[in-house]
Design a protein around this nucleic acid. Structure first.
Length: 1156
RNA sequence: GCCCGGGUGGCGGAAUUGGUAGACGCAGCAGACUCAAAAUCUGCCGUUCGCAAGGAUGUGCUGGUUCGAUUCCAGUCCCGGGCACCA
C-alpha cells in the first residue's frame, strides 16, 4: 500500500465537507464553553489571474496555527472571504464589456477551488464578500454612523452629532472651534441660523464629511485616489500620472484619531517595522507655531488719525500726539533710517519713531532670558487682566511686552499707539527724547495715547472703551476672532507670517522666510516692484505637474516678494520668499529658514545669495548645514551659551509669554479621501436636497448598486453612476450621491462580520463581538501597512466609542508573510536585422560588439555563398563558431532585450523549444532554428553561451523577480498539488524559510519534503505487508524522540517558526526510522502533532490506526519531561575558547567533581 | 537624505539566554540494490595543510568587551524594505 496522496486528499476533503468538520459555533447557539481564538487572513481581492504559489504562504501559516489551537482545545474562528469591490474588475469591464459582478463571481469560484485544493480549514459558511448587498448594507450603515458623529477632543471620544448640537444650543461653538478661521457664534446665533447654515457648520465636525478640497486626481483612471494610493506622483495601480484638483469629496476625519492611532501601537503586537511605517505615515512632530510680524509697509494716513485722536482727547481728557505714515517717518529722519519701523538710534540720541517696537530686547542687552524677566507691576497686572477679559492684550512679563502690545494695535491697522509708562524706566534725558519723539510722531500723523500708570488705572474704562470702539470700526472681525479663539497671540491673521518649526531654538539664525507659492498671504504682501517676478514664478509653478515637481526635487527655484517680516526677538528684518520646496499642505505652509541648520534652507540661501547667520559657531563649517541639536548657541540673544536642545523649551516658553507663539503638535497625516468616481464600489446612502447632504435612514439600506452596461465616466469628473438619470432621483426626493466608496471601506470592518455573518438586524451582535473580541492573530502582507490597517484601526476606534464593540484595537498580533518571488526565465533577443524572406534568401545581418566595443556587422546565413554586396554568407553551423570567437558579444548580449518565456517550458535553465512552440497561439511558420538560436517573429534569440559546449541547448537567463503574469513565472499551486499533493505543498511552503521573510520559489526542493512524507507513511504502512503498526511498549529511546519532538513542535508552532518545525518532523521520522519504531503509542502521538501541517495524510493514518472520528478533534500530546532526562552529558572541554576535547560525565556529578 | 530589517557553505536556511557554527532540506560526489531506469538505502560534503591521525582557519569588513562573540558595543561597507522637499 503506497502513499497515494491524490486519493487520500480527495477522500478527506470530501469527508470534511460532508461532515461540516470546520463549522465554528458562536457561544449562544450551542453553549460553547471553550476559550476562543480568532485567526484571520487578510482576505484577497479575487483577481482574474487566480492564486500563484506566493499567495497561500500566509494562509498556510494561519491554517497551521488554527488547527494547532483547535487541537489545544480552543474554539477557533478561522474564516475567509473576498474583498470583491475594486478597480481591476471595473477596468476589465471597460476593456471587455463584461460586468464586474460576472467576472468577480467567476474569479471567486476559481479562488474557492484553489483554496479548497490546499485543504484549508475555513468555515465557508461564514464567508463574506464586500460586494454583496447583505454585506455592504452594513458598510453603508457604518458610514451613516460616522456621518452622524463628531470627535469630542475633551474626552477623546467619538460622539453622536446630537451632543454637539446640544453644545451649540447651550453655549455656541466657543469651546469647540476647529479651525482658526472659523466663525465664532453664540447659542443665540446658532438658533437663528437656517438649516443649510447649520448643516454646513456641522459638516466641519462630522467624522464622515463632505469638503471641497484638493484631491489626487488621476485622469487615466478617471478617479480620485487616496494619498496612499499615489506613489511618486503616479497611481499605485497602473502608474498613471496624478494631478491635484479641487473637488467636492467625502472624507473621513482620521486626523482626529492620529494620537490614538499612535498610542494604540503600544498595545498591539506588530513588527517594529510595521509600527514604524504607521508612525511615519501619521508623522507626528512637536514644535512651535511662531508668528513673525510683518514690517508695516503699507502706506497710512488720511483723515482717520486726526478724527480718532480728537475723539479720544475729548473723551479721556488726555493729550494726544499725532503722527503720519512710514514714508514720512523716513523722510523726517533720513540719517537713522533703520530696517525696522522707526527704531530709534540711541547712540546718536536722535528722537526715534515707534520706539522699540521690536528691537527692545536686543537693545537692552539682556544676557539671558531670566535676567530679562521681571514680575509685572500691579498696575500692569490690572491693565493686562482688564484687556485680557476683553480679548485683547497679553501678559506683561517683560518690559518690552508693553511695546509689543502697542505694536498689536498698529498691526491691526488702528491708527493708535497706546503706551503705558509703567513698564518704561528711562532716565530723564530719555524722557525728553521721548517727548521729542512724540512731537515728531505728531508731525507725521501718528496717534499716541500716552498714559502713566495712575492715569491708566483711573481712566481705564474710558480708554478701553475707546480702543474697542476704534477697533470695532476698523477691524472688528480681527478682535472678535481672537477673543473667541482664546488665542494668546495679539497678532492675527494677515498681520504676520505664521510658521511651524520643530527647531524654535534656531530662531536667531533665521535669515529668510519661505511661503508656499499657494500661500494666501503672497498676494497681500508682494510689493509692486516684485509683483512681476512673483507672477512669473507662480505661472511657472502652475505649469508643472505634481510629477515634474517631484522628479526635480533637487532643483532650487523661488522668488522674492519684496516684503519683510520681523524677528520678534532681535527685530531683524527678514526677507520673505516663496518657493516650491515649501508645501502648502503641511504646517502653516510657511517656514522660517535657518540656512546654517537646514540643508534645504542652506541650498536656497546659497542659490539666491542670501547672507547666512551662524548661530552654532564651529559646528557650522560654512559649506553645509549642520542640523545638530547639541551645539552651543551663539549670536542668539538671550539664548547665548545654551545647548540647542535645552533652548527649544526655553524659546517656546518665551514665545508663549509674549503671546506670539505656542507649543504645537503637527501631523503629516491628512484626512482620508472617501469618494471614488467609480462604478464597482459601495454607493453612498446620501441624498442631496438643495445642495445639502442628507443621510438615508437605516431601513432604506442597502442602497443597491444599480446595474449598468457601460462604465464610462459621468459628466464633469463624476462616476459612471451619474449617467443613470433614473437612479439619481431618489424615491423621496433629492438627488443621489453618484460617487462610490473606496476599496478600503469594506475591508475596514470585515473581521467583525465574520463573527455574526447572518445577522440581519445589526452589523454584529454585541454579545457575539464580546465573545470573539480582537483578532488574536492576523496574517497578511506588508503592502497594507498604512492603508488598510490604519483605516481599519480607525473604524474600530469609532465603533468602540459608539458602543458597537468592546475593544478599540482590531488586531492583537500581526504577522506579515514575506513575498515569494518567482524565478523568471528569459531568452535573449539579439539586435538582428532580417533581410528578405526567410524561405527565400536565408541570410541576415548580424550586429555585434568587438573587443574595442565597436559595432560590427556580419552577414550570416544558411547557405554558403556571397550576397549581392559581396559579404560572405555562412552556414548556420558556422555561426556558432563565429559567436565563440566573439566572446565580448556574448557578454554584452546578456543585456540585450530579453523575452520572458513561460517557466513551465524551462527546466534546469534550459528552454524546451518544442513546448515553447506549442504554447504559441499560432505557431509561427517563419521559424528558423540554428545551433546558436532561432528566429522568431523577426527577432533572433540566442541560447546562453556555455563553455561546456552545450551545443543546441537553449540556456535561459534566470532572475528572481516578483511573480507576475507578464514575467511568465507564475507557478500555479494547483499544478504543485497535482504533482506532489497538498500536504507536501503546505509543508514545503513552510519549509522554505521563516514566514516573514521573502524568498524565491524553487520547485526543485519540494522533493525533499515529499520524500519525508513518504518516509513518514512507511513507518505505518509497508508496501507489501500493509499496516505494520504494533502495540508493543515503546523503548526509552523512542519515547525520548517523541517527547523531544512534542516540545520542539509546540515551541516552534507557538512562535511561528514553521520552517524549523518541519525540520523537527524530519529529524523525528529519521530517528524513528533508524530505531525501526512502528509502535502505536509513539506514532499515534506523532500523527496528532503533524495534523496542523499535513492534515490529509494524518487523517488517513489516524483512521488506519483504527481510530473513530477525526484527528481534528484529538487532544494535543502532552509533553512529559521525565522521558527527556539524561543520565550523562558530553561536556565540551574548552581551552582558550577552543574546544579541545569532550568528556562524557554523569549528570549526577557535582560541580566540584566535574571541575576535577 | 532619514527610518527599519538583514549579511552564515554551491543554494534555501538552523543555532530560542554569550557556551561544540553550519541542524534540516536541495544540489553535488562515491557506493549498494537493479539487465536498466525509477524508487530506496549507505557514506562523504565550509576553506585549507596532511597519506593519515590531526592541525590551522572560518558567520561582510575593522576594532572593542569577555575565559569564550554569528550573538553584546563602536565604527565601516554592502543588500533588501519603507518614507522622502514634512520645516
Amino acid at each position: 500500500m503506497e502513499y497515494n496522496f491524490r486519493e487520500i486528499e480527495k477522500k478527506w476533503q470530501k469527508q470534511w465537507k460532508d461532515t461540516n468538520a470546520y463549522k465554528v459555533s458562536n457561544p449562544d447557539s450551542e453553549g460553547v464553553i471553550k476559550p476562543k481564538f480568532y485567526v484571520l487572513d487578510m482576505f484577497p481581492y479575487p483577481s482574474g489571474a487566480g492564486l500563484h504559489v506566493g499567495h497561500p504562504l500566509g494562509y498556510i501559516a494561519s491554517d497551521i496555527y488554527s488547527r494547532y489551537k483547535r487541537l489545544k482545545g480552543f474554539n477557533v474562528l478561522h474564516p475567509m472571504g473576498f474583498d470583491s469591490f475594486g478597480l481591476p474588475a471595473e477596468q476589465y469591464a471597460l476593456e471587455t464589456g463584461q460586468h464586474p459582478a460576472v467576472t468577480t463571481e467567476k474569479n471567486i469560484q476559481r479562488y474557492h477551488e484553489q483554496l479548497d485544493n490546499i485543504g484549508f480549514c475555513y468555515d465557508w459558511s461564514r464567508e463574506v464578500r464586500t460586494s454583496d448587498p447583505q454585506y455592504y448594507k452594513w458598510t453603508q450603515y457604518i458610514f451613516l454612523q460616522l456621518f452622524d458623529s463628531w470627535y469630542n477632543r475633551k474626552n477623546n471620544c467619538t460622539e453622536r452629532i446630537a451632543t454637539l448640537i446640544e453644545i451649540f444650543q447651550t453655549e455656541g461653538n466657543q469651546s469647540e472651534s476647529r479651525n482658526p478661521k472659523a466663525e465664532i457664534f453664540s447659542s443665540e446665533e446658532w438658533m437663528r441660523f437656517d438649516e443649510a447654515k447649520k448643516q454646513e457648520i456641522l459638516m466641519e465636525y462630522r467624522i464622515a464629511f463632505l469638503a471641497f478640497g484638493e484631491v489626487n486626481w488621476c485622469e487615466a483612471l478617471g478617479t480620485v485616489l487616496a494619498n496612499d494610493e499615489v506613489i511618486n506622483g503616479v497611481s499605485e495601480r497602473g502608474g498613471h500620472p496624478v494631478v491635484k484638483k479641487k473637488m467636492r469629496q467625502w472624507y473621513l476625519r482620521i486626523t482626529e484619531y492620529a494620537d490614538r492611532l499612535l498610542q494604540g501601537l503600544e498595545q498591539v503586537d506588530f513588527s517594529e517595522s510595521m509600527k514604524e511605517m504607521q508612525r511615519n505615515w501619521i508623522g507626528k512632530s512637536e514644535g512651535a507655531m511662531i508668528e513673525f510680524p510683518l514690517t508695516p509697509a503699507s502706506p497710512r494716513g488720511g483723515e482717520e488719525p486726526a478724527k480718532i485722536s480728537a475723539e479720544i482727547e475729548a473723551e479721556t481728557g488726555m493729550v494726544l500726539v499725532h503722527g503720519s505714515d512710514v514714508e514720512n517717518i523716513e523722510k523726517a529722519s533720513p540719517d537713522q533710517k533703520s530696517s525696522d519701523l522707526g527704531v530709534r538710534d540711541r547712540e546718536k540720541n536722535i528722537p526715534g519713531f515707534g520706539y522699540g517696537l521690536y528691537k527692545v530686547a536686543s537693545e537692552m542687552n539682556f544676557k539671558n532670558a531670566k535676567e530679562m524677566r521681571r514680575e509685572p507691576t500691579e498696575a500692569e497686572n490690572v491693565l493686562w487682566h482688564a484687556l485680557r477679559n476683553r480679548g485683547v492684550g497679553y501678559k506683561f512679563r517683560r518690559q518690552h511686552a508693553i511695546e509689543n502690545f502697542i505694536a498689536d494695535f498698529i498691526c491691526l491697522d488702528v491708527w493708535l499707539i497706546v503706551e503705558v509708562d509703567g513698564g518704561y524706566h528711562a532716565p530723564v534725558e530719555q524722557k525728553e527724547a521721548d517727548e521729542g519723539r512724540d512731537a515728531s510722531l505728531q508731525q507725521i500723523g501718528f496717534t499716541t495715547l500716552r498714559f502713566t500708570n495712575d492715569e491708566v488705572l483711573q481712566n481705564l474704562e474710558k480708554v478701553l472703551l475707546k480702543i474697542r470702539e476704534t477697533c470695532d470700526e476698523i477691524k472688528v472681525a480681527s478682535v472678535e476672532k481672537r477673543s473667541a479663539a482664546g488665542s494668546p497671540s495679539p497678532l492675527q491673521g494677515e498681520a504676520g507670517v505664521r510658521v511651524y518649526t520643530t527647531r524654535p531654538d534656531t530662531i536667531f539664525g533665521v535669515d529668510f522666510m519661505v511661503l508656499a507659492p499657494e500661500h494666501e498671504l503672497v498676494k497681500h504682501i508682494t510689493t509692486p516692484e516684485q509683483k512681476e517676478a512673483i507672477d512669473q514664478y507662480l505661472t511657472y509653478v502652475k505649469s508643472r505637474s505634481e510629477r515634474e515637481r517631484m522628479a526635480e526635487v533637487k532643483s532650487i527655484t523661488g522668488a522674492f516678494t519684496g516684503a519683510y517680516a520681523v524677528n520678534p526677538f532681535d527685530g531683524r528684518e527678514i526677507p520673505i520668499w516663496i518657493s516650491e520646496y515649501v508645501l502648502a499642505g503641511y504646517g502653516t505652509g510657511a517656514i522660517m529658514a535657518v540656512p546654517c541648520g537646514d540643508q534645504r534652507d542652506y541650498n536656497f540661501a546659497k542659490h539666491f545669495n542670501i547672507p547666512i547667520t551662524n548661530i552654532i559657531g564651529d559646528a557650522y563649517n560654512g559649506e553645509e548645514a549642520n542640523p545638530t541639536k547639541d551645539a552651543i548657541l551663539q549670536n542668539s540673544g538671550f539664548l547665548n551659551g545654551m545647548v540647542m536642545k535645552d533652548a527649544i523649551g526655553e524659546v517656546i516658553d518665551e514665545l508663549e509669554d509674549l503671546g506670539i507663539g505656542k507649543r504645537q503638535v503637527n501631523y503629516r497625516m491628512r484626512d482620508a479621501g472617501f469618494s471614488r468616481q467609480r462604478y464597482w464600489g459601495e454607493p453612498f446612502p446620501i441624498v442631496y436636497k438643495g445642495g445639502v447632504a442628507y443621510p438615508l435612514t437605516e431601513n432604506e439600506l442597502p442602497v443597491e448598486l444599480p446595474y449598468v452596461d457601460t462604465y464610462s465616466h459621468g459628466p464633469e469628473g463624476e462616476g459612471p453612476l451619474a449617467n443613470l438619470a433614473d437612479w439619481i432621483i431618489a424615491p423621496h426626493g433629492g438627488t443621489r450621491e453618484t460617487n462610490t466608496m473606496p476599496g478600503y471601506a469594506g475591508s475596514s470592518w470585515y473581521f467583525l462580520r465574520y463573527m455574526d455573518p447572518y445577522n440581519e438586524d445589526q452589523l454584529v451582535d454585541r454579545k457575539v463581538a464580546d465573545y470573539w473580541g480582537q483578532v488574536d492573530l492576523y496574517i497578511g502582507g506588508t503592502e497594507h501597512a498604512v492603508g488598510h490597517l490604519l483605516y481599519s484601526r480607525m473604524w474600530t476606534k469609532a465603533l468602540f466609542d459608539l458602543g458597537y464593540i468592546g475593544f478599540d484595537e482590531p488586531y492583537k498580533k500581526l504577522v506579515n508573510q514575506g513575498m515569494i518571488q518567482g524565478v523568471s526565465e528569459k531568452i535573449l533577443r539579439l539586435d538582428m536585422n532580417m533581410r528578405g524572406e526567410v524561405e527565400n534568401t536565408n541570410w541576415y545581418e548580424f550586429h555585434y560588439l568587438d573587443e574595442q566595443d565597436n559595432l560590427q556587422i556580419q552577414t550570416l546565413g544558411r547557405d554558403n555563398g556571397y550576397d549581392d554586396k559581396g559579404f560572405k554568407i555562412y552556414y548556420s553551423a558556422e555561426i556558432f563558431e563565429i559567436l565563440k570567437s566573439h566572446k565580448e558579444f556574448l557578454k554584452v548580449s546578456r543585456n540585450f532585450s530579453p523575452l520572458y518565456v513561460n517557466v513551465a517550458n524551462v527546466s534546469d535553465h534550459s528552454l524546451n523549444v518544442f513546448s515553447f512552440w506549442k504554447d504559441e497561439p499560432e505557431p509561427n511558420r517563419h521559424v528558423f532554428v540554428t545551433k546558436v538560436g532561432f528566429y522568431y517573429n523577426n527577432d533572433f534569440f540566442s541560447f546562453h553561451y556555455d563553455n561546456e559546449n552545450r551545443n543546441g541547448v537553449f540556456k535561459t537567463v534566470h532572475e528572481f523577480e516578483k511573480i507576475s503574469k507578464s514575467k511568465k513565472n507564475v507557478v500555479n499551486p494547483d499544478d504543485i498539488v497535482e504533482r506532489f499533493g497538498a500536504d507536501t505543498f503546505r509543508m514545503y511552503e513552510m519549509f522554505l524559510g521563516p514566514v516573514e521573510q521573502s524568498k524565491p520559489w524553487d520547485t526543485k526542493g519540494i522533493e525533499g519534503v515529499h520524500r519525508f512524507l513518504r518516509k513518514f507513511w512507511r513507518l505505518f504502512v509497508d508496501e507489501v505487508k500493509g499496516v505494520i503498526v504494533t502495540n508493543e511498549e515503546p523503548t526509552a529511546a523512542e519515547l525520548k524522540v517523541l517527547h523531544k519532538t512534542i516540545r520542539k513542535i509546540e515551541d516552534d508552532t507557538e512562535r511561528f517558526s514553521f520552517n524549523t518545525a518541519v525540520s523537527t518532523f524530519m529529524i523525528a521520522v529519521n530517528e524513528l526510522g533508524d530505531l525501526k519504531c512502528h509502535k502505536r503509542s509513539v506514532l499515534e502521538q506523532l500523527v496528532i502533532l503533524l495534523t496542523p501541517y499535513a492534515p490529509h495524510i494524518c487523517e488517513e493514518l489516524w483512521s488506519l490506526l483504527g481510530n473513530e472520528g477525526s484527528v481534528l478533534n484529538a487532544p494535543f500530546p502532552t509533553l512529559e519531561e521525565k522521558y527527556l532526562v539524561e543520565s550523562s552529558k558530553e561536556y565540551p572541554i574548552s581551552i582558550n575558547g577552543k574546544v579541545r576535547a569532550n568528556l562524557n560525565l554523569s549528570l549526577d556529578a557535582t560541580q566540584q567533581q566535574v571541575e576535577e
